[in-house]
């Protein structure tokens, strides 16, 4: 219990917990749509394209050291600016992938794959170039380490970043709520939505931007490699357990929250890295949900939250 207490009360851990809650709430809502629309690979593409954003940010940091310099007490404008560059880069990539896969000549997975490797290559080259430039100018490297980008660093989240995370989550959830009906129409029936007057292109773009923002924020928690898990696993768990719309969104968010708290507790108790611990917990929840469904169908009992009884 002491681990749970310290997670709640210690300022550092509680920032991590609250920031994580913002991430899993936002991702949990989007997750249902990611799973239904098979956008998991898009999430993967967007998160990996963050390397390109890191490359651009580190080049800018060398060229404009004043703007990117960390302020007293760490974080501050430099971090924020760097985060902004990564967000813009990821959104641009997401929209690019969306536009390219629109064309019948290029399958979606090919276009996503090209953006993924293209921006990773760009990131690697730009980080190298900026390090060389920094060395020749006698500056220190100003950009965060690869490891924290790869696997996240939730326990290093500051209070301000946590508030920022909630603002972003509130914005994304607000947009999702505002467009819920046309968005659902588009998700259900992309082909004929425009014949009904639904702004199909705008809905696709909105979902892509929300996805990109969610992935970038999720990277703070789980890193590039595992960010997609937060957009895929909660929805997958929810759709195992229910075939109803709003219950599935609620279960998805709840699965995310349980995965987050369980993962952070594991991480504190056993000194495991937090991001992978959260993802592992979600994997276990998915396995449990699958087991429950398998057993309930095997013994011909209704699923936990199955079809509504008429």
């Amino acid at each position: 219990m002491s681990t749970l207490e310290s997670l709640m009360t210690s300022p550092m851990y509680s920032s991590a917990l609250l920031a994580g809650l913002a991430v899993v709430t936002m991702c949990g809502v989007l997750s249902v749509f990611v799973v239904v629309k098979r956008l998991g690979f898009v999430g993967q593409g967007v998160s990996h394209s963050a390397f390109g954003g890191v490359g651009v940010a580190s080049l800018l940091a060398v060229m404009l050291p004043a703007a990117f310099a960390p302020h007293d007490g760490g974080g501050g404008m430099g971090e924020l600016l760097q985060f902004g560059v990564i967000v813009v880069f990821c959104i641009a990539t997401a929209l690019g992938m969306g536009l390219m896969s629109n064309r019948r000549t290029l399958p979606a997975d090919t276009s996503i794959g090209m953006f993924l490797v293209g921006s990773m290559a760009l990131g690697a080259v730009l980080v190298h170039v900026s390090r060389e430039m920094a060395r020749s100018r006698g500056q220190s490297s100003l950009v965060q380490s690869w490891e924290s980008i790869l696997f996240g660093s939730i326990f290093l989240v500051t209070r301000d970043e946590m508030y920022g995370g909630w603002v972003i989550a509130a914005l994304v959830l607000g947009v999702a709520w505002w467009f819920r009906r046309p968005l659902l129409f588009w998700v259900l029936d992309e082909e004929s939505s425009s014949a009904f007057g639904v702004p199909a292109g705008a809905m696709k773009g909105t979902l892509m931007v929300m996805l990109a923002v969610a992935v970038v924020v999720a990277m703070k928690l789980a890193g590039v490699v595992l960010a997609t898990a937060l957009l895929v696993m909660p929805g997958a768990i929810a759709l195992r357990l229910t075939q109803r719309l709003w219950p599935s969104v609620a279960i998805s968010v709840m699965a995310g929250i349980i995965g987050l708290i369980g993962g952070l507790l594991l991480s504190l108790r056993l000194d495991w890295p937090p991001g992978p611990s959260v993802v592992l917990t979600l994997t276990v929840i998915f396995a449990l949900a699958s087991c429950i469904v398998w057993m309930s169908t095997r013994w011909a009992r209704p699923a936990l939250v199955g079809e509504p009884v008429r």
Partner: peptide, 9 residues
Amino acid sequence: EIETGLPMS
């Protein structure tokens, strides 16, 4: 061609 995976009545 509706998205049959969408949990919607």
